[in-house]
């Protein structure tokens, strides 16, 4: 019996060795192919040539990713699109492993992901802190002036009636205030507790689960809530004539658009192209891009193409 097993085991081992050997030999052939090396010698790090660009399942993020993709393509760098990946839990490991190599991110939110205790608030501080907080193998390129961060907004009527243009003005409002936003806002550091601690403003809270969408706007118009959390790049702020309150004490973490890249893919060519894009992407541009998607129902592809033509970088 024993002998038979050993025989079988030996047989298997042999087959395994042959198989491994064959794979190694094939792999050797592939990397030894002179044609193959010549085609990738231009882009040193990008294995197989194409740089893989990902995006969140958030329309605005996808537009930025598409801009990166088209900008690289315009400079003869091959790209592969892996859009709509979802949450950070899902895509950050993929970026670290190099499955996805380039991703539009937001400085504040990304910093909070890696360092929840961070005390950095301003745009520059956050960007500096982010460079130190990123794990091995990931880096950020230049941040764009465009921001997409939480912001508190009131109606124009409310702003005028109470003389409120900044969060610090809210303390002098005598009528009770209710804040509306997604339910997680209640427990966020910039939620009701943050307002009280930073600005001495006491607010009630009403959870509305559409991320500053039509229900939130309606509740604001109906005066069921007086203060709502909407992303600063949301075109609805302008469309509904809302006033975004200033945040002089830095309650919100600044969150600029920033390209997150796998170090292996960060060749000078790629970095150069993406940095040019970032430098040109202003806050107004981002709102406009979002508006084209939300109000004009344009595709990310078309919006990215039009913007690149407008800024004429390449």
């Amino acid at each position: 019996m024993n002998h038979m097993f050993t025989a079988i085991k030996k047989g298997r081992l042999l087959t395994g060795l042959v198989a491994v050997g064959a794979v190694v030999a094939l792999a050797g052939c592939a990397s030894g192919d002179p044609l193959d090396t010549s085609s990738t010698s231009g882009g040193d790090a990008a294995e197989g040539g194409a740089i893989v660009i990902g995006s969140q399942a958030y329309y605005s993020n996808e537009i930025i990713a598409e801009i990166y993709a088209q900008a690289l393509e315009a400079n003869d760098i091959e790209v592969e699109r892996q859009f709509n990946i979802g949450q950070r839990d899902a895509y950050l490991p993929a970026l670290e492993s190099g499955e996805v190599q380039l991703f539009p991110e937001y400085t504040g939110n990304l910093l909070q992901y890696y360092d929840p205790e961070t005390t950095a608030k301003t745009s520059d501080d956050v960007y500096a802190a982010l460079a130190g907080a990123l794990p091995e193998g990931l880096e950020v390129l230049d941040q764009a002036p465009a921001t997409d961060q939480d912001s508190y907004n009131v109606t124009k009527e409310f702003s005028e009636a109470n003389g409120v243009t900044s969060l610090s003005d809210l303390a002098s409002v005598t009528t009770p205030l209710t804040l509306g936003g997604n339910s997680e806002l209640q427990t966020r550091p910039y939620g009701p507790e943050g307002l009280l601690a930073t600005y001495g403003v006491t607010v009630g809270f009403t959870p509305i689960e559409d991320s500053g969408g039509p229900l939130t706007l309606q509740a604001l118009k109906d005066d069921q809530v007086q203060l709502v959390n909407i992303y600063s790049a949301d075109p609805n702020i302008a469309a509904a004539g809302l006033v975004t309150l200033e945040d002089p004490e830095g309650l919100f973490l600044a969150s600029n658009v920033v390209p997150l890249i796998n170090t292996d893919a960060a060749t000078p060519e790629v970095s150069d192209v993406i940095n040019k894009v970032s430098a040109a992407l202003t806050a107004e541009d981002l709102v406009e891009l979002n508006s084209q998607s939300q109000n004009d129902q344009e595709s990310a592809d078309t919006i990215a193409k039009n913007w690149l033509e407008k800024v004429a970088l390449f």
Partner: peptide
């Protein structure tokens, strides 16, 4: 109901999903 600030047990579920 929790989606439109109507309370009930769904409020917990919506909040829990956002906070994972």
């Amino acid at each position: 109901a929790g989606y439109v600030a109507g309370g009930a047990l769904g409020a917990f579920i919506f909040e829990a999903f956002a906070l994972r």
